[in-house]
């Protein structure tokens, strides 16, 4: 599933970028992140509670800051694995300065497999939107704090 869109964050670009690469902040940005431990260069092991309402489950995975070009570009790779299959995502965030605020262009792809892929089809896009919305809400909170 391809995902893209824009989101404005009311904070300067440098600040937003800093938040995005700060492990402690990342733990707060990722929706459902319960644990985050360093595991090599720019890579972290995470425990995620992914899903919505009753349909959530615990996932183990990794987050990798695959490419960093401060303060304008960042590539994130997330893998996660749980009892119903897997959900992996990779995407870039491009940060554009806009009058003291930051316009974030995001584009990426999510691959899901197992139960979620074959059962949750009709809810996937809505769920992705919800999770992305939460991510940016968290980012707004962190960056504007």
């Amino acid at each position: 599933m391809k995902i893209q869109g824009n989101q404005t964050i009311t904070a300067p670009r440098e600040k937003v970028f800093r938040v995005l690469v700060d492990p402690q902040a990342i733990a707060r940005l990722l929706p459902g992140c319960e644990e985050l431990e360093p595991a090599g260069a720019d890579t972290y092991d995470v425990k995620l509670k992914l899903g919505i309402a009753a349909l959530s489950g615990s996932y183990q995975g990794t987050v990798k800051l695959a490419e960093q070009r401060p303060p304008e570009r960042l590539r994130l790779e997330v893998t996660s694995r749980g009892p119903w299959g897997f959900a992996d995502g990779a995407g870039t965030l491009e940060l554009e300065e806009k009058k003291g605020k930051t316009l974030v262009h995001y584009a990426g792809e999510v691959k899901v497999g197992g139960m979620i892929a074959s059962i949750g089809q009709r809810l996937l896009e809505g769920a992705a939107r919800l999770v992305i919305g939460q991510f940016f809400k968290n980012l707004e909170k962190e960056a504007s704090a």
């Binding site: 899903g51 009753a54 349909l55 489950g57 009892p83 119903w84 139960m115 979620i116 059962i119 949750g120």
Partner: peptide, 20 residues
């Protein structure tokens, strides 16, 4: 989780997408 008619919840539980 509250169980009402169960026709949304139980199918999800049977597939183990939900496990209250």
């Amino acid at each position: 989780k509250l169980l009402a008619g169960g026709h949304s919840l139980l199918p999800m539980m049977k597939l183990r997408l939900a496990a209250p």
